[in-house]
Design a protein around this nucleic acid. Structure first.
Lengths: 249, 249
DNA sequence: GTGTGTCCATTGGTCAGACCAACATACCGA
DNA sequence: TCGGTATGTTGGTCTGACCAATGGACACAC
């Protein structure tokens, strides 16, 4: 004989909330639509206003509706997720000040480095190593290393195990691939000096090392140092659109 | 002149839910404990039963409590479950992990603090001070400080003089303003004279101080400490004394 | 025309008190 | 011992009311 399951206790407010939510999901109620006044709606559904209000309370917690006195209860548009907002922001990045973009990137990547140093798995580490070696190979072969560079940083952010951070970084990185940036970068990069290239590799290696050793502070410092070099050159260069209120420090 | 922000509508049930949630979080109410009967509890808290029930409705959604007729309302909350439930509900709304959002915020705001400490003008500083005092006033008055808190952090980012950073931060902050966050935050608050509240103010004051002294490292550290503590208190539901099975994420 | 003040209807927020149904408990009788 | 029964407790629901904020209509002053 099977054991009997406890019968489900059907609570009225939940049912009411379900009905309303169903209308929203099915599109009968669209964002911006106003629900009938509570008194009226309660009457329509044959429940008391208290019961209806408990139902609305739930929907409000889920940010499906929003109620304001004397204006009624309206169906809210689902809030834009942060990652979607990044995409919107990224679309406008092109005409932003490159310094600003780099600073935001520094913010994200420094944090990513911290987290990576705390959370990286051994497989993460292997992948990161691999990217580093690929980068080294490109450089020593005298080939263009842009892709390998981006790949390395991408892998680094991956080690942080934070999807939002990843898409945020991706948005910023993508914004840095525009034509403006390419001319900018190439104008910043001097002759591919041997020593410069060794430094360049070493900076990446330092990041890799810090992450391997689970040293969050070192990882962040390494990332900052790496990006700061570009940033410094940029602030010193900067002529096309001279920023007025530059640093006071 | 700054634009005025909409003042926050303080709803009684949310506050009530916050108080009860705070008791659970602090260990004054432990799993298995029974709450007083609704009529009695409502009388104790000087709210109507309807209001109290809306609050309990929220707590039930979080699966913090469970109510069964003629048996009373009992605290469920087997530790970690509440946190998971929070993540599930918040995540269900916009498919985003609150912890991830917080980490991205930490990234942006830490950077903002660095830049602010380097670039803040005297007017910036005055504005920041003002926000700090407004926050202090709210707290000492025992009022809701959410708006003032957000305003302070917003002003801080403003001091960095980086528009991209500002809009990015705004996007992240927007994701932290829903009713769920509000309820959770209110469960963190204590009495105005409480040590918790003094620390809370002091953390903001430390940020303000570091920015005033042009100390980028200190500013970043202060911001990180503040956010770290908030996140920690937000996600830790074990009473401070009985912390046996720790997660090592 | 602009804007300011006043009144009024609407609407969500809150409250007080009541009844219902289910359940626990204790008591009762076979 | 065990089923039946009376009773009080408790959450679930309902009713009706008042409060406070708001938008709109309208009159009035500049």
């Amino acid at each position: 004989m099977d054991k009997f399951q406890p019968v489900e206790r059907t609570l009225l407010p939940n049912k009411v909330a379900g009905v309303i939510m169903g209308r929203v999901r099915s599109g009968q109620l669209r964002p911006g639509d106003r629900l009938p006044p509570e008194r009226e709606l309660a009457q329509q559904m044959h429940v008391s206003r208290a019961t209806l209000r408990e139902a609305l309370k739930v929907l409000r917690l889920f940010e499906i509706i929003d109620a304001v006195p004397n204006q009624g209860t309206v169906v809210k548009a689902p809030r834009q997720a942060v990652r979607d907002q990044w995409l919107a922001i990224a679309g406008h990045i092109d005409d932003e000040d490159p310094v600003e973009v780099l600073e935001v990137r520094e913010a994200l990547e420094a944090q990513a480095a911290r987290l990576a140093a705390q959370r990286r798995t051994d497989e993460d580490l292997a992948t990161l190593h691999q990217s580093l070696e690929a980068l080294r190979a490109q450089v020593t072969a005298g080939l263009d290393s842009t892709q390998a560079d981006i790949a390395f940083h991408h892998k680094l952010v991956r080690c942080a195990h934070n999807r939002l951070l990843l898409v945020s970084m991706a948005a910023v990185l993508r914004a840095m691939t525009g034509p403006i940036w390419q001319t900018l970068m190439s104008s910043l990069a001097g002759e591919p000096d041997d020593e410069v290239m060794r430094d360049y590799i070493e900076q990446h290696a330092a990041i890799d090392r810090a992450v391997a050793q689970l040293d969050a502070d070192a990882a962040e410092a390494a990332v900052r140092a790496h990006l700061r070099i570009t940033l410094d050159r940029l602030t010193r260069w900067d002529p096309p659109d001279a920023r007025s209120e530059e640093e006071h420090a």
